[in-house]
Design a protein around this nucleic acid. Structure first.
Lengths: 151, 151
DNA sequence: GTGAATGCAAAACCTTTGCAACTGG
DNA sequence: CCAGTTGCAAAGGTTTTGCATTCAC
């Protein structure tokens, strides 16, 4: 039996996808930086440390390929640069307006994200993208000493 | 009493916002093109018909000002150009993957969009942005003769 | 009158593209 | 071997910016 325990750099074996060094590096970096939900530039910066010859275009390329292959997810919020996320479970993203960090937000058990909504009748929903903005727990508690003065 | 019946070009009176001809034109255009959820360029094109001297930068400017003043809403989906929407009620957007049209999606009565989600405990949610992709009713019925062959 | 808004053009930003060289299966 | 991928640089589309001029209040 194959171990799937502590391999942090698991080899990609995605349906007929040619596995290049670059793709593996990009994939590893997205895993590594998962909690910060890196942008393409952030992935590029880290990837370049591991493989100095890699180019930005290739990073974009790999990110797109991996996204199409559903190995990672592309996260968009407003017009900011896209971020990438290795969490393949259905989830939303919470953006802290103060510290700019991003949190994955899961669904309640058995819950359906589309439940509260009046979907157009007769339509077919393929995917839902949910972005939240607010203050994260940490920033919220620090908000006491926020300048309340007019500028 | 003031009529609020058929005035399609109601005058903006937003908290201390200086009302310029350009802002009024941009606001009118967003109202006018509401169903198509126009992009900044689309607003610019239509605005220029009404006021040939208006510039693109001013349109962006006005759209931002109006958004900040909560007279209109900015709608983002993936990395496409922002669209603008005069619907101030809480609502989501349904994007048809086939015909590219956009529909407003309302909440069920008394429903809370955040209900299905496990919000980070201690966080403060300010706004939620919900984008849906799929087939609109019209396009769905036309999907019978969609190529089902492998490529 | 005066601070804020406009118009213009140039710049910024993220992302995509064209193409020759390279490479994984 | 050879289609698919890379690296580079240049181009693309959207949005922002700097600044002199104009305008609403």
């Amino acid at each position: 039996m194959r171990a799937n325990s502590t391999e942090d750099t698991k080899t990609l074996e995605l349906g007929g996808l040619r596995m290049t060094k670059q793709r593996q590096v990009v994939y590893d970096v997205v895993q590594e930086l998962a909690v910060e939900h890196p942008t393409a530039s952030a992935v590029y910066a880290r990837a370049k440390e591991k493989m100095p010859s890699i180019s930005l275009a290739t990073v974009y390329n790999c990110l797109e390929t991996l996204t199409d292959a559903r190995a990672i997810t592309q996260v968009n919020i407003d017009r900011e640069a896209s971020r990438f996320c290795p969490n393949l479970q259905p989830h939303a993203h919470f953006f802290c307006a103060k510290c700019d960090s991003v949190f994955d937000v899961t669904l309640h058990d058995e819950a359906d994200a589309s439940e509260p909504w009046n979907l157009p009748s007769g339509s077919k929903l393929d995917e839902m993208n949910v972005a939240m903005r607010g203050l994260c727990p940490d920033c919220r508690t620090q908000t006491d000493y926020e300048p309340a003065l007019p500028d």
